[in-house]
Design a protein around this nucleic acid. Sequence first.
DNA 1: CGTTAGTTTGACGGCACTCAAAAGTTGTGG
DNA 2: CCACAACTTTTGAGTGCCGTCAAACTAACG
Lengths: 250, 250
Amino acid sequence: MGAHAESSTASVPALRHACGLCSLQEWCWPAELEESDLDRLHAIVRRSGLLPAGRHLFRANDRFTAIYAVRSGCIKTYNTDPGGHEQVHGFHLPGELLGFDAVYPERHHFNALILKAGSVCIVPYRDIAELSRQFPGLQNRILALMSHDFSRQQMCAEGSGATQRIAIFLFDVEERLRRHYYSDYEFDLPMSREDIANYLRLSPETMSRLISKLQQSGVIRVNRRHIRLLDIARLSLVAQGAHLDRKPVQ
Amino acid sequence: MGAHAESSTASVPALRHACGLCSLQEWCWPAELEESDLDRLHAIVRRSGLLPAGRHLFRANDRFTAIYAVRSGCIKTYNTDPGGHEQVHGFHLPGELLGFDAVYPERHHFNALILKAGSVCIVPYRDIAELSRQFPGLQNRILALMSHDFSRQQMCAEGSGATQRIAIFLFDVEERLRRHYYSDYEFDLPMSREDIANYLRLSPETMSRLISKLQQSGVIRVNRRHIRLLDIARLSLVAQGAHLDRKPVQ
DNA sequence: CGTTAGTTTGACGGCACTCAAAAGTTGTGG
DNA sequence: CCACAACTTTTGAGTGCCGTCAAACTAACG
């Protein structure tokens, strides 16, 4: 589990770029992976170039061929029901994976749209499946990652009230961004209000109203997409279902 | 359902009973599995005796050791938040698996309570993980099952209105029961109204009211837990978000 | 500077929750 | 078999949250 990437020989710089030096490495493929496993990983992982905002990484019903790891930027997954209404399924931030849901039936269930330009790692499924048979650590890791995704993605469902869901969402995004950008409870949302509202199953109007209310209560500070969590304790209470009182200081 | 031998210590023909003759076999471990894979599977799968209603199969935070396959009865998974409020996560019917969510971090996230007496197959995780390394078909199957579970479990979130969610739920349960009990759109719900309401994030009162309304509209017929779907077309519309008009025939 | 998309604010209405109580069902013991 | 208790389900009345409709306001971009 050491930081074997940082101090060893630089004689094969090209390979090291793939995963060894990757700032996300410890998150994507941490812990149990041996040095030898990582070398094999290098051979199958490919890096995309810069993907501009507005482009689709894949679309619903596309054939499933690879897992993607977000390196930078932000990707939203969504699909459109027969009635044409769009439903946002989730947001994928740097260090997070997407595509596992499509292992069965080998077709993607969602559209994946680049919200904020960035790049991804592409991990061909056949290769990683084959490789995982040879390296037990890797197999465990894949199962664990799937299981982890599985558990986390249903977060948006939690919370009975709109304000509570928003508070949970803010904490969630802060925590996920904190891993790669030092934040100190201050960060920029990579997605629009509309997308957040859709994800949380709220109308954009309600979303806007409640964000304003949170600010008026002195719990957060908002400027466009820039968020600052001011009163963690109180926001935490809200996230647990508490009601929001008036501003404590005037 | 299959009348299988209870003993797991019997000789070869008895072993075949474990999965080979199981009526659930094609659902649990279908398709790609070779005959030889199945033989190995026999060796590690264990069958529970009859589990009475009210008993827990496992509890939240229990160490994760095995996947369970429901053979008969019904199991609900739920957890209780700090405030003591119970949240139902899902219902597991014959032929369905549970436990995959706990692969990481090797602890169960939910309580699993037997709602209706029945039995399960117990598949030790270590063994199946080890075995899957030797049999690619089995590994694919496990990943596919996890992925499938992953996709289906978020059904309850779908649907914006209460009536819509109920309609979706009814279709879902009907479809899942149909696999093992010939139903013709008629079946018994294995869980209480309260559990359904909780699962769908409704109050029991709202649940009751809307079930009554569906019956008054002639879309379904209800007697306690016995449900009959009368007007599939109209219920299907409701499940897609349509509004419910008055009873068409008087 | 004009256009456009995104966000905010206001007014209003309906759906679903809460509180409350009746009706029905199940289980237990006399 | 009946009585009684405990629980589940149903029904009713009132309220509040959140969605819809509509309009003003604010960046962002050419």
